[in-house]
């Protein structure tokens, strides 16, 4: 499979909803799609990264209103364990049509839960819309704290927005300060599980989106599955998005392909290196566990 996965179309897009673009990280694609799907009854609710008691620490919530979606808009650079609620959403929340957003690995988890529903009773046919976000790597909450508080010298609670782009991690505070650190210095904080990930643009999502490849304020959107295609066409017909053909925007699809190739090549090397990580008594290599081969 290509590093960008299977897709039916790729577009540069931006939400036409000003309430959403005020809150969103880039083009507001995920929030707008869920708002549209809620409105149209395509989903009964969506599992999103909602706010928690600690600043910038996301907590999975089942959003059933646009206000709840807006409270979850924007990127938090630490994982929200959204799969935590995937069975619960169909049970105590009583949803028959579940939306879920997640990183590429979380989209993998969704598809595994559908194809091999070992402990996921009555979930497989209730996933109505799985939206993926591009992801190079992720950080633990404590790592994010170290970056924001130690490297960028800002308090977590004073931060208005965090962003990664152009080789920098940038923190914008409520009072207008801007702090940056080079992205290179972040690598030591990346959670180890990300180093074996072989997916950059959420190949298994119905629709996946991220800022890379599109101009500021816009997002690149891959429409992948039949389900995704139907939702996207509906949202376009409803006027939810402004769009531009991908070959007419800068920096364009080439940058997405370049970053995807870099990530996957690097991580494939990590996966391979695990096979010869240690040493047996007879001098031959001793490997670590490889999840892509056997449990």
């Amino acid at each position: 499979m290509d590093v960008l996965g299977n897709y039916k179309s790729v577009i540069s897009a931006r939400s036409t909803d000003k309430d959403i673009t005020k809150q969103s990280q880039d083009g507001g694609i995920i929030t707008t799609l869920f708002a549209y799907a809620l409105e149209e009854g395509i989903i009964d609710g969506a599992i999103v990264a909602g706010p928690s008691e600690e600043p910038w620490k996301p907590e999975p919530v089942v959003a059933t209103t646009k206000a709840e979606l807006l409270a979850a808009a924007g990127t938090r650079y630490t994982i929200s364990p959204n799969l935590y609620l995937i069975k619960e959403a169909t049970r105590s929340y009583g949803l028959d049509r579940v939306g879920i957003v997640g990183t590429p690995c979380q989209m993998q988890a969704v598809r595994k839960a559908q194809l091999y529903p070992i402990g996921m009773r009555d979930v497989d046919d209730k996933i109505a819309l799985a939206l993926g976000i591009f992801c190079m790597e992720n950080l633990s909450y404590q790592a994010l704290e170290a970056i924001v508080e130690d490297h960028c010298n800002q308090k977590m609670e004073s931060v208005k927005k965090m962003d990664i782009g152009k080789g920098k991690f940038t923190v914008y505070t409520e009072r207008g300060a801007v702090s940056q650190m080079p992205l290179k210095l972040i690598h030591k904080y990346v959670q180890p599980g990300c180093n074996v990930c072989l997916d950059y643009v959420a190949n298994l999502a119905d629709i996946s989106s991220g800022s890379v490849g599109s101009p500021d304020g816009w997002s690149t959107v891959f429409v992948r599955s039949m389900k995704g295609n139907a939702v996207w066409d509906g949202a376009i017909a409803a006027g939810c998005f402004e769009t531009k053909p991908m070959d007419q925007v800068k920096p364009g699809l080439d940058l997405v392909t370049k970053l995807a190739t870099e990530k996957i090549t690097k991580n494939q090397k990590n996966v391979d290196a695990r096979k010869t990580f240690g040493l047996k008594a007879d001098g031959t290599p001793k490997g670590l566990r490889n999840p892509y081969e056997t449990p």
Binding site: P60, I79, S80, P81, N82, L83, Y84, L85, I86, K87, E88, G102, T103, C105, Q106, A109, K112, A113, I118, G119, M120, N138, S140, Q191, P192, G193, C194, N195, V196, C197, L288, R289, P291
Partner: peptide
């Protein structure tokens, strides 16, 4: 060194 915190185990 393989966990990325997706939440599947807790959900299942």
């Amino acid at each position: 060194g393989l966990c990325m915190g997706c939440g599947t185990c807790a959900g299942t």
